[in-house]
Simulated assay, not measured.
Amino acid sequence: MDEPIDFEARAKQWVTQRYGEGAGVRNFGPMPGNSGLSFGFDIYSSGESVLESVVVRLAPPGVRRSGNTDVLRQVPLLQALGQTDVPVAPLLWHGDESSPFGTDAIAQRRLEGRSLSRNAVGTLAPGRTADDYVERAVEALTRVHAVDWEALLPGWGTPVSVEDDLAYWQRLLDKAADPQVLELAGRVRAKLIESQPTGDRRGLFHGDFQPNNVLYDASGDVLAIVDWEIAGVGRTGMDVGWLSFMLDKSFWGPEYREVVQIDVDPALIHGWYEQYAGVELPHFGWYRAYAAYRFGTIAAYNVRLHRTGRRPDPVYETMASSVPVLFQRGLEVVDS
Score class of each variant (00 low, 15 high):
residue 56 V to D: 08
residue 274 E to L: 08
residue 6 D to L: 03
residue 187 R to P: 09
residue 179 P to I: 11
residue 45 S to V: 03
residue 151 A to Q: 15
residue 189 R to V: 04
residue 262 I to F: 01
residue 74 Q to F: 13
residue 167 A to D: 15
residue 168 Y to C: 02
residue 163 E to P: 01
residue 24 G to I: 05
residue 100 P to C: 06
residue 134 V to C: 02
residue 127 G to H: 08
residue 250 S to Q: 15
residue 178 D to R: 15
residue 262 I to Y: 06
residue 111 L to Y: 02
residue 45 S to A: 15
residue 62 G to L: 09
residue 96 D to A: 02
residue 196 Q to D: 11
residue 251 F to P: 01
residue 92 L to V: 10
residue 312 P to F: 03
residue 215 L to E: 01
residue 282 P to R: 08
residue 286 W to P: 00
residue 183 E to D: 15
residue 83 Q to W: 06
residue 160 V to G: 05
residue 38 S to I: 13
residue 314 P to T: 13
residue 104 D to C: 01
residue 255 E to A: 14
residue 183 E to W: 12
residue 63 V to I: 13
residue 22 G to F: 12
residue 204 L to M: 00
residue 18 R to V: 15
residue 133 Y to P: 05
residue 65 R to N: 14
residue 6 D to H: 07
residue 326 L to G: 02
residue 92 L to C: 08
residue 76 P to E: 04
residue 208 D to V: 02
residue 127 G to P: 11
residue 261 Q to L: 14
residue 182 L to T: 11
residue 95 G to E: 01
residue 128 R to N: 11
residue 10 R to W: 09
residue 172 L to V: 12
residue 166 L to Q: 12
residue 202 R to E: 13
residue 182 L to F: 05
residue 307 R to T: 13
residue 30 P to C: 10
residue 94 H to G: 05
residue 150 E to C: 05
residue 134 V to Y: 04
residue 241 G to L: 00
residue 189 R to A: 03
residue 60 P to Y: 08
residue 184 L to A: 05
residue 157 G to R: 07
residue 215 L to A: 00
residue 160 V to C: 08
residue 292 A to E: 06
residue 95 G to M: 06
residue 142 T to R: 07
residue 156 W to T: 09
residue 125 A to D: 04
residue 282 P to V: 03
residue 190 A to E: 11
residue 57 R to L: 10
residue 74 Q to S: 12
residue 83 Q to Y: 02
residue 143 R to W: 04
residue 84 T to Q: 15
residue 333 V to Q: 05
residue 128 R to Q: 14
residue 1 M to A: 12
residue 301 Y to N: 13
residue 204 L to W: 01
residue 239 D to R: 00
residue 330 G to W: 06
residue 175 K to F: 03
residue 159 P to A: 14
residue 334 V to D: 01
residue 39 F to I: 13
residue 51 L to F: 08
residue 76 P to Q: 03
residue 305 L to S: 05
residue 36 G to D: 10
residue 6 D to F: 02
residue 62 G to A: 10
residue 302 N to P: 00
residue 52 E to T: 01
residue 263 D to Y: 12
residue 32 P to K: 14
residue 245 F to Q: 07
residue 330 G to P: 07
residue 76 P to N: 06
residue 328 Q to C: 04
residue 274 E to Q: 15
residue 197 P to C: 07
residue 317 E to F: 00
residue 219 S to Q: 00
residue 66 S to V: 14
